[in-house]
Design a protein around this nucleic acid. Structure first.
Length: 484
RNA sequence: GGUCCCAUCGACUAAUGGUUAGGUCACCACCCUUUCAAGGUGGCAGUACGGGUUCGAAUCCCGUUGGGAUCACCA
């Protein structure tokens, strides 16, 4: 049987980082086995629909390097891939269940249900729909049921869960899971608005779309028995389940907005590379080995197996993600980063050649984590109008600094080749001869030329800036300093 | 609270009965060095607890504790 998996988000908001990981594991598994990865939009809740959510899911997936084989926008042999466009189907299957006495109608209002739960709570028993007491077709009887139906009363369809026995299923990451049927609620399958709930739609679609493996978050584990029951009620083969460990906040609760930005797009906006984010997130809950951290998408695909997925949830550590991003920044081919860098520079009204952008990138990338730090971190690379760090200046600009820097100026002016080796040799020889220690002139020079205490090698930086710019900045500073 | 799931350094994890319990992030120190980084070297730090099974347990079993998920006409 061929591998067919699906990522089935509901368009209720921007794609969550946990969703991205679920999508990724599905994608890796499919590609590893040469199977298909399908995107199915589960938009059966009319009230929670969010405009643009579906676009965001597709956009982010593509950014992350995942291309679905079948999807709402692309189509495919099992479409439509949006559940709201498949409602007739679910109605049909619900009717089939009704006909086989595997499901039944219920007419309770939300107030009645609320009251039921209240009673159960007070009695200290588990909240669970009781079809022998509530307004189900069993208590109402066929005549009253028909009367209500004819009258057009609101009615939902519930799964008739066996009163006893065990429900078992196998999960690749969890092993065998066993639940008592008596603990399973008579799940609503079809809402009174005619839309299916997740459970019905999901099972029907997974069957119809010939899904072989259901790979989803652990939050679905408690409702899987209901899905098992549904497969049995329809007489369908079950897919293989794999429930992924949750992504956690630092307090070990399920990762949520409360602890910061959890939308995948926020990570893109912050400047994380898609490759780095994918790499990082892939390693949260799965690990192919222990002596490596950096993997390309293709390597992840080659190595991925569900058997190696962990059971325990994983805390999302942004620090490590940042480290990984910095790794990607340093190890990338500079050429490949130029398009992104130019976009960033352009946003800051900086227009320079690719050649120069590449040189600057190569010089600065070792000290930053994000590409988008370049305009700020390297402000002095693009303009004479940069801020001088007052603390740095206060610390290193001493009484004799002016004289020292002034004495270096003619040496620089005299350089034919203004490269870091020549600058180093010339200044080095002079200062050594005159007994000037390096910190007496290095810091003042750096302060004048870059404004800040951090940065690439000073002489390399000066070379990059060029003779003219360096001399201009020094003279400007000296004259401003002299007039104080 | 019911049900289910889970448990190795602070974090991510490796070790699928035999290792001085390994790696990475973070942190600390040192080296390198014109700053800051990067890089290098070293360090800190863990099998939740208690019982079994076994010659031998992080690993298998039971219990305890702790954490989490879930209990909607949401997904």
């Amino acid at each position: 049987m061929s591998v067919r998996v699906r990522f089935a988000p509901s368009p209720t908001g921007f794609l969550h980082i946990g969703g991205l990981r679920t999508a990724l594991y599905n994608y890796l598994f499919a590609r590893h086995h040469g199977g298909a990865c399908i995107l199915r939009i589960e938009d059966t809740d009319q009230t929670r629909f969010v405009e643009g959510a579906e676009e965001n899911i597709i956009d982010i997936s593509r950014w992350a390097g995942m291309e679905f084989d079948e999807s709402p926008e692309k189509g495919g042999p099992h479409g439509p891939y949006r559940q709201s466009e498949r409602t007739k189907l679910y109605r049909q299957y619900a009717d089939e269940l009704l006909a086989n006495d595997m499901a039944y109608r219920a007419f309770d209002t939300s107030e009645e249900l609320e009251a039921m739960r209240e009673r159960q709570k007070n009695a200290g028993i588990a909240a669970k729909y009781d079809r022998t007491v509530m307004r189900s077709e069993y208590t109402l009887g066929p005549d009253e049921t028909k009367r209500l139906l004819d009258q057009g009363a609101d009615c939902c369809i519930r799964l008739k869960v066996p009163v006893s026995g065990e429900i078992r299923f196998n999960d690749i990451v969890r092993g065998e899971v066993i639940v008592n049927a008596r603990d399973v609620d008579d799940q609503i399958l079809l809402k009174s608005d005619g839309f299916p709930t997740y459970h019905l739609a999901n099972v029907v679609d997974d069957h119809l779309m010939e899904i072989s493996h259901v790979i989803r978050g652990e939050e679905w584990l408690p409702s899987t028995p209901k899905h098992v029951l549904l497969y049995q009620a329809f007489g369908w083969d079950m897919p293989t389940f794999a429930h992924l460990p949750l992504l956690l906040n630092e307090d070990r609760s399920k990762m949520s907005k409360r602890f910061g930005d959890v939308f995948a797009k926020s990570f893109r906006e912050k400047g994380f590379f898609a490759d780095a984010l994918v790499n990082f997130v892939a390693l949260l809950g799965w690990n192919p080995t222990s002596d490596r951290e950096i993997f390309s998408m293709q390597e992840l695909i080659d190595l991925f197996t569900l058997e190696k997925v962990n059971k325990a949830g994983a805390i999302f550590d942004t620090k490590k993600l940042e480290w990984m991003n910095a790794q990607y920044l340093r190890n990338a081919n500079p050429e490949s980063l130029l398009p992104q860098l130019q976009v960033i520079l352009h946003e800051h009204d900086i227009e320079i050649s690719d050649e120069r952008a590449k040189d600057i990138l190569t010089l600065l990338r070792e000290r930053i984590t994000f590409l988008n730090e370049i305009p700020g971190f390297g402000a002095y690379m693009f303009s004479d109008d940069y801020v001088i760090d007052e603390e740095y200046k206060a610390k290193h600009w001493t009484a004799e600094s002016s004289a020292i820097i002034s004495s270096l100026l003619p040496l620089m002016k005299g350089l034919e080749e203004f490269n870091h080796i020549a600058i180093n040799d010339t200044i080095g020889a002079f200062t050594k001869e005159n007994g000037i220690t390096s910190k007496l002139f290095i810091h003042p020079l750096r302060m004048i030329i870059t404004g800040k205490p951090v940065g690439a090698g000073l002489y390399e930086t000066m070379e990059m800036l060029g003779k003219e710019v360096c001399i201009r900045r020094i003279e400007r500073f000296l004259s401003e300093e002299g007039t104080r």
